[in-house]
Design a protein around this nucleic acid. Sequence first.
DNA 1: CTCCTGGACTTAAAGGTTTTCGGAAACGTA
DNA 2: TACGTTTCCGAAAACCTTTAAGTCCAGGAG
Lengths: 337, 337
Amino acid sequence: MASKRATINDVASLAGVSIATASKALNGRQDVRAATRERVLAAAAELSFQPNALARGLLSGQTRTVGLLTSDSVGRFGIPVLLGAEDAFGAGEMAVLLCDARGDAIREQHHLRALLSRRVDGLIVVGESTNPRPSVSKDLPVPVVYAYGPSEDPGDVSFVPDDVGAAAMAVNHLLALGRRRIAHITGPTHYKAARDREEGFRRALEEAGAEQTGQTMSGVWSQRWGRHAAEMLLMAEPEIDAVFCGSDQIAAGFVEAARERGRRVPDDIAVVGYDNWEVLSTETRPALTTVDMNLELLGRTAAQHLFAAIDGKATPGVHKMPCQLVIRDSTSPPGIS
Amino acid sequence: MASKRATINDVASLAGVSIATASKALNGRQDVRAATRERVLAAAAELSFQPNALARGLLSGQTRTVGLLTSDSVGRFGIPVLLGAEDAFGAGEMAVLLCDARGDAIREQHHLRALLSRRVDGLIVVGESTNPRPSVSKDLPVPVVYAYGPSEDPGDVSFVPDDVGAAAMAVNHLLALGRRRIAHITGPTHYKAARDREEGFRRALEEAGAEQTGQTMSGVWSQRWGRHAAEMLLMAEPEIDAVFCGSDQIAAGFVEAARERGRRVPDDIAVVGYDNWEVLSTETRPALTTVDMNLELLGRTAAQHLFAAIDGKATPGVHKMPCQLVIRDSTSPPGIS
DNA sequence: CTCCTGGACTTAAAGGTTTTCGGAAACGTA
DNA sequence: TACGTTTCCGAAAACCTTTAAGTCCAGGAG
């Protein structure tokens, strides 16, 4: 560990100028002779001077730091938000202060206070599901954007995936392949995601004048449920030719069970999953066609809008972000696979 | 957005005392009458005063903030480190600044500078594999601990999972079940994790006087490779009664392929995986016995040792953290399953 | 010669908090 | 009354940087 951190005072002394001149030289401002500037820069390099961001922030009121308040979806969102922040500024210019509330409102309040006392420039609140969540933005001195889980307050800025549209897109893909006897297996109905995806499913069928085959099967988001549902479904509706699953876990369970029962995917039954969770979607046999929610884009967009809001250009409301259908072998048209 | 943030000055004015008294009252120090303290506290509450952490840090030289420098294992480590930080202090007392270097040394330098200029109290560097990585700690004014990926410099503080010991533990478990014809399928040999796990595998067999069945099969960390390896292995060494896999992905592929070929798991072949990645390990049929590296404990321990180092109590060297064998159905002794 | 201009640099204030030290009041003792 | 002690409070410095305002000087214009 090095001895003591150099301050601009040390730099100024070493260069034989005042701290004001040193500051101007270091920040590339006018009113300083080239020779002097060079001397200052040399001194700063020798002392490996790093300006103290605290002092700077205290003065300017800007910390170039944003808070990320999550409830454990750090892996899915933390990185995209970081990338978004870096894209909007230079690399290393903006920093992210990470907090995990573990789903506890009290702890969330604690973290909120801690972030505010650190004078973050803005806040990104990440939900663990797409269910609307209570707003934290009441009377906050900094702008807030919500990602994935929208705020209940429509006056806040929220970014959510367009589950309804994505589900419709998935079903339209199945319809375009000529499939007409399509079933739906999904997760618990207390998830808005499950309800939205079912709505997209129904709408697409309606618009095409087709009928859903069987009832929507709601269970949990697991491979086990996918297998179980597959067994029931293949028994009850043996003539189905496609299934839209509410998650890749369910879809993975479905294709495994179908395979065991001698149903060929995609020839007999085409399958579409949801999430594009690659450890599942690319490793099943066949690999899954699935909806990618573009969470990275979502995080990046949220970060960019936060910066816009920091600059006073907020755009309230719930913004639905488009998803993308990743087509793999589980829906290959006949003759290609 | 609220109007303006209250400062301790505002609180002092409202309470009719000087800022020194206000500070003392707010920080619970002596030398202030109970009645006065109460007045100050009431004023602070009314203005919802939050002390400015920048000013405080500037003065004390402590920011109660640590930097987390990762290369994308945020999900696996970010959270444990956060929890560890909260455990070592009160919730919301310590904050974590998150940086992702994306495996780029230049970017890592950038982030390092950004973190230092923000005056973090310490640094946790997280590797993406257990391969040793270059040290960043040369002449840094703050302590650093390495988690998962150790530093090449033995003078640094590193925490890594005990892969050798864990693999031996897994194999001993198989031996205790009476299995003697044990094979090993794992990932690429340029991963130290793969080499360490193989070493533990060999050692355990040697100590038991048993012989490895077949050659160690090195491929990639995927389910697909697990299936492929299973096919080759079952062909070449049909009499095996157990397999130790270098990851749950490989193990999941193995049990699937074995099942298809009519081999019963665990009755005919016992299987042990590695990672306890629950989306895989609990969803295969049967659920996998697997090594849990206790990454959460690792992260927490790293955080706690960082705090110790901040207090001047460093403990240099590479610390091997114990892993844990999670026993599930894929190694149930006969008669139980 | 004086006056002015503009460049190069310095002084000082500001930002919010903590802390040291000194001061003042109240009270007890001789 | 004079003095020492305790209790409570305030003034001011310190942390580091940026910036507005001020100083000084050389040189050009009149």
